[in-house]
Amino acid sequence: MQVNIALEPGVHRSAPALAIEARGLVKRFDGTLAVDGVDLAVPEGAIYGILGPNGAGKTTTLRMLLGIIDPDAGERRILGHSNPQDVARQIGYLPEERGLYPTMKAFEAIAFMGALRGLPLAEGRRRGRELMEQNGLGHAVERQIRQLSKGMAQQVQLLGTLVHSPRLVVLDEPFSGLDAINQGKLELLIRNLAANGATVIFSTHVIAHAERLCEGVAIIAGGKVPYAGSVDHARDRIPAQVRLETLNADGPWRAALPAQARREGNFWYFPLPDSGVEPLLRALIEGNAGIQSLSIERAGLHDAFVAIAGEAAARALNAEPETVQ
């Protein structure tokens, strides 16, 4: 699917415009605080993740951004508009709760979803057939939705979300229900959308998807966003870890190791000192450590999530099943 956004000739931007901007979003349901002061800034053309466990406020946040529900407090701007309904036809939205008319043919379902966003029905039918062919569903074009597997029906709904070539694509837990092969296809599709100019924001409780795809993430837990920014900056909050294997068990080189270094067999594990690796290497060599191997591993997004949101939120995140169809 091609989504082409071009700047006018001669126009230069020092920083990308924001596709989504939210400040202080608050939402209560029956007196219960579901979202508590969420701030977001998503640049145009970015792939952005909302990462958190079930019940953290991800879906409520997305629905407020889209204008499906209104916040009790705070402000939002979507594609430059304070009223999301003004740009509804430029948005594609895949809700967490999937739903298609069971007797409708697959390509007609895609066309129908496009028509809801202003795409002429005839063009939607043409694109629907084309998209299904391109995504390995050509054999199911004429099938009714009720004749499809749950996973195939989900793919049809996703194509219906994209058929009108939206500038902003909002996906709520899009990987849930897909097997590993189709998850890989969806990741490629998301990358292609961004490469062609669209902005993609998706919610997920699977850290691996966010780490592979996103330039930026918002970590949400208990309705709050303790971190929103680049994935790299989140990971850099935790020092890189050193894995050192030595031939000698003891010696003057031990003084070069930080106090929190732990030993497991012939290996030592500890945070990279602030002074860097070169002084460490010099001390190890001069102290006759007998270096067998030394590697420096950067912290992953999971480690950053634990540090930012806490172990309880991480346990809740990891406890959620990933249903595969």
Rank of each mutant, 00 (worst) to 15 (best):
Y227W: 13
I296F: 11
A312R: 14
H302Y: 12
A283C: 07
A249H: 05
L189T: 02
L244M: 08
L280H: 04
E311C: 07
F267T: 09
R191S: 04
R235C: 12
A283F: 14
G216P: 02
G287R: 00
P273A: 03
F270C: 06
G276A: 11
G216N: 02
G310M: 14
C214Y: 00
S203M: 00
A234S: 09
N318H: 09
T204F: 05
Q241H: 06
D250A: 10
L193Q: 07
K224E: 12
G177F: 01
A255H: 09
I201E: 12
G290K: 03
A289N: 05
A194M: 06
N318Y: 09
K185P: 08
Q241F: 02
L193N: 06
L178D: 09
G287A: 02
H233I: 12
R298P: 11
G229D: 04
H302R: 12
Q183F: 05
E215Q: 14
G300I: 04
A289I: 10
V277G: 03
S295L: 13
N196Q: 13
A312L: 14
A228Q: 15
L189H: 01
A208S: 12
W268Y: 10
N266Y: 10
P279V: 01
I296W: 05
N182G: 07
I296N: 02
A240P: 14
G300F: 00
G177M: 01
A255P: 01
G251Q: 08
V242Y: 11
A255M: 08
L186I: 02
H209M: 05
K224F: 07
N248I: 13
